[in-house]
Design a protein around this nucleic acid. Structure first.
Lengths: 113, 113
DNA sequence: TCCATATTTCCATTATTATAGAATTATGGA
DNA sequence: TCCATAATTCTATAATAATGGAAATATGGA
C-alpha cells in the first residue's frame, strides 16, 4: 500500500461524522445500509452525507450498489485491514512496543470466530 | 480511548509531511531526533515543522524534551498502539475480516523480538 | 404519463488547515 | 556581556474541507 492511499484513508476517518458513518457500516456488515437510513440515524442532511460517503468511497473504505431507489453502502473490510497493516508494518516497522497489545486484540478476535 | 482522541491522532497522521515525520521518529526509536535534523532531512522550514510537531504532540503521538539548544522529539509508541487497538476493537468491532491479516502481522512482529 | 421518494450534483458560504516570513525566546560558548 | 545557533511564536496568506439550500437525476408505483 502506498503512503498516499494510507493518507487518504486516514483523512477519510479523521472526521467525526465520517468515522460515525464508517462505524455504522462496519456494524451493518456485508448487507450494508441505505444512504437515507444513515442520514436519518445520524441527523445529517442527505446532501452532506452524500459528500461524506463519496469521500469514504474514494478512499476505498466503502462500496456502493443501487437497490431500487436506495443506494446501499457497505464497509470495505479489506481496505481497512490494509490500512491497519500499513500502519503496523510500514509506518511503525513492526515495533514490538506498538504490536504487542495489537497482536493480543487481533488474535483474540480471530480465535473467537 | 475516546473517539475524539482517535480522530485527533488520525488527523495528525493524515498529512504527508506529518506522516513522514512520524515515520522518522518511529525509526529513530526512544532517543528521538532534534527538530532541526528532521527539518533538514525532510526539507521543511523550521517554523512549519514546529507547527507540525505541535500537532503530533497535541495528538499524543510524540513527546519532546530539551537537550541543550535542541529540542528532541520521539514517537510515543503507546499512543500509536492505543490508536491501532481502538481502530481494531472499537471502530471495527474485532471483525475477523479486518483482524485476520493484522493478527498475523502483529503476531509475527512480536514473536521476532 | 405523472408523482413521490431517494440520492446526488451544483453552488456558495464558512471554517479549518498548511505554509512561511519576521520577530522572539532559550541555550551555550567566546 | 555579546554572538551564533536552535526552536518557537506571531501573523498573514493561500489552499482545502465542511456544510447545506436548491436543482437535477434515477427509480418505482398509480
Amino acid at each position: 500500500m502506498e503512503s498516499i492511499d494510507a493518507i487518504k484513508r486516514l483523512a477519510a476517518l479523521a472526521q467525526d461524522s465520517r468515522l460515525a458513518v464508517f462505524r455504522q457500516l462496519v456494524k451493518a456488515g456485508k448487507e450494508g445500509l441505505a444512504a437515507g437510513d444513515i442520514a436519518r440515524s445520524l441527523g445529517i442532511t442527505p446532501n452532506t452525507l452524500s459528500a461524506q460517503l463519496t469521500i469514504l468511497t474514494n478512499a476505498g473504505l466503502a462500496t456502493s450498489r443501487r437497490d431500487g431507489r436506495s443506494i446501499i453502502y457497505a464497509a470495505d473490510y479489506d481496505a481497512m485491514s490494509a490500512l491497519l497493516i500499513y500502519l503496523t508494518e510500514d509506518c511503525c516497522q513492526g515495533r514490538p512496543e506498538v504490536c504487542a497489545g495489537l497482536a493480543d486484540v487481533a488474535g483474540r478476535a480471530v480465535c473467537a470466530r
